[in-house]
Nucleic acid binder design. Structure first.
Lengths: 168, 168
DNA sequence: GCTGAAAATTATGCATT
DNA sequence: AATGCATAATTTTCAGC
């Protein structure tokens, strides 16, 4: 058994509520209360607390495929260290970019772009990105399909103090 | 000018509503209606339609950092083609995995894992993954920081029929 | 497809345990 | 921290435009 992780701000009720909100963030507190077997006032307070603490964000997530963005590409950039802040700001503002992260080296950046067709992708790789001062495209790789993403992620039950049969 | 993309199921009102829902998926239709300057009944119908069409999912997204998952790692796997379905199913069920995608080759899989510390990461890389029949770890790379992810993504205004000063 | 008005449901504020 | 209760606000239903 590994060490019991310090403080757990949430419990199994929070976990159950979270699962419902994950299915439908607009579900009424009354409906959720019914499913998780709790008082609706309690449910609302728990939701408010999780959001206020910043543990959870209730949001609208848009499906790129629905809008015709059928192509996903991982792109590897190298940037001018002196212009890092402005370049990252610029990249943040580009709607084609669905993922932006620091890469392995100190001047490496990884991004994921979504495009409607290969023409759009090519234009982005050969004109948009190289057109940003201090940015050079080191390579890219088409992503054949994404099966899971952060929006479907949930911490394990243990993080809510729920002990599943444990013998790890 | 590139070709006008076929049919646009949504308009600028949908776009405005979406932006509000992105900030807070539980915002009341009345509040949203005030901000976007529309009737509340209309707002509700637009929301329902976007969700029913599958363009948007209203969900709770959990912040891994809040729960102590401070380490992100990109991991590259090669899997036995004959066991693809069962392996992908297995990977889907692992809570450490926040991203799962097909990779470049026909037997390549890319995943992203989140861990509380390097010990947990090491255990995952050296025992959990190799313990899955048909899976071998080809390499991995620590991700120093993620600045943007799919949950913050929105299609460009053009996809809602909004013509910004365009001269691309 | 948008809006109006009444009924039903849900959310909020205060108080109690 | 959870809940009961009264009040306020929102959502739903049934329309008409």
């Amino acid at each position: 058994m590994t060490k019991q992780s310090s403080f757990l701000p949430f419990d199994e009720l929070d976990y159950a509520i979270l699962q419902q909100l994950n299915k439908n963030a607009r579900a009424s507190a009354v409906d959720i209360a019914r499913v998780v077997n709790a008082n609706e006032r309690t449910v609302r307070k728990r939701i408010d607390r999780m959001v206020e603490l910043g543990a959870v964000r209730l949001t609208a997530i848009v499906d790129p495929h629905f809008f015709g963005y059928g192509i996903s590409v991982d792109i590897f950039l190298e940037i001018d260290a002196d212009q890092e802040a402005s370049i990252l700001g610029h990249l943040q503002s580009i709607p084609s970019i669905t993922y932006l992260a620091y890469g392995h080296g100190t001047t490496d950046i990884s991004i994921e772009g979504r495009f409607k067709d290969s023409e759009e992708m090519r234009h982005f790789l050969r004109h948009v990105l190289p057109g940003i001062p201090g940015v050079s495209v080191k390579g890219y790789a088409l992503v054949p399909g994404i099966l899971r993403n952060i929006d479907e992620w949930m911490p394990p039950p243990e993080d809510f103090g729920i002990t599943t049969k444990d013998s790890d």
